[in-house]
Design a protein around this nucleic acid. Structure first.
Lengths: 162, 162
DNA sequence: CGCCATCAGTTCCAAAATGGAACCTAAAGC
DNA sequence: GCTTTAGGTTCCATTTTGGAACTGATGGCG
């Protein structure tokens, strides 16, 4: 199987990776959350080739993660859409994991202040239903309606999982 | 800049992507959370080339995300370490985003039951300090100790951000 | 014991993606 | 009207990937 076929898998992780799983894409998103908006600013901050950047931005616009708006004649800004803003949990979870597991002993690169409470925070994933923090051992994955009539995919591994 | 230099960036997102940002890697992790453990099972479920799989598994073991253990002479299992298990918030956030934004109209592929409360849940990211859900607009990123004396990196874009 | 199947890879090569440098074009500033 | 800046595109060498075929060590079975 090739990488660009994963968008058609019956799996939400695969489908998400079809959008943000390419090289550089999550770093473009990171910069977008830090209010970077212009082509040259992305390019200078990321140090990636203009060629690749151009292609990635186009793809993100096509998927509706960024929107491209002129701020002058022939000058454009790329901004996160609602769809893009909702990538925040993924991004901040990556930041937290890197803080903990890829530390170089010099302290964390960035701190995040939660304005409403005024503290530096770290993201905590809790259950939408009971509010308790999630331990992956306490979660049972089950086949949902979208996968039910699908003979391919991971039936086998899910059976093993339960 | 080349992709394999991002591990040395003073940014926890970059460093995380150095580990899990390659093609297929997050899908290997996904399968690992679904209790897939053996080479051939990963290969059949993912449909990726054995060559690439072999390389990715080796890399994940080197980084300490998976551990390789013999379950018979010359037969091995790959299991998530503590470091690997803590990738769960990233993975489940990807699943949630895909459920919402990459839906094909046939219903969600998978449901996740939170055993302690018994409900199908979705992950919610809340502030570690006050417990409220996080809206990215309410967060102010600030330069941390690890980036303070570093002239490169994103000083410029952070200033713009604040 | 001898044969076949399974598991866990490795080797080799063609095809696709990436990185870098140079080039292009349309405003805007002076 | 000349120069600078922003926002790209083109071209080509280098890397990565994907796929098929091959290897080698058990393990099961008649």
């Amino acid at each position: 199987m090739k990488w660009d076929e994963i968008e058609n898998e019956v799996c939400s992780v695969s489908r998400t990776l079809a959008v943000v799983g390419d090289r550089w894409t999550m770093l473009i998103i990171r910069d977008a959350f830090l209010r970077v908006r212009r082509f040259d600013d992305f390019q200078k901050n990321l140090g990636m080739s203009r060629h690749r950047l151009s292609e990635r931005l186009k793809k993100l616009v096509d998927y509706g993660v960024l929107k491209k708006e002129a701020y002058q004649a022939n000058r454009y800004e790329y901004r996160l859409t609602e769809k893009g803003l909702e990538l925040y949990p993924i991004l901040i979870s990556m930041a937290k994991w890197g803080d903990k597991w890829m530390d170089d002993g010099k302290g964390v690169p960035m701190l995040y202040k939660h304005n409403p409470c005024g503290h530096h925070y770290s993201p905590m994933v809790v259950c939408s239903e009971c509010g308790e923090p999630i331990d992956p051992h306490d979660v049972t994955p089950q086949i949902g309606p979208g996968k039910f009539h699908n003979s391919r995919a991971h039936s086998a591994c899910i059976e093993k999982a339960s």
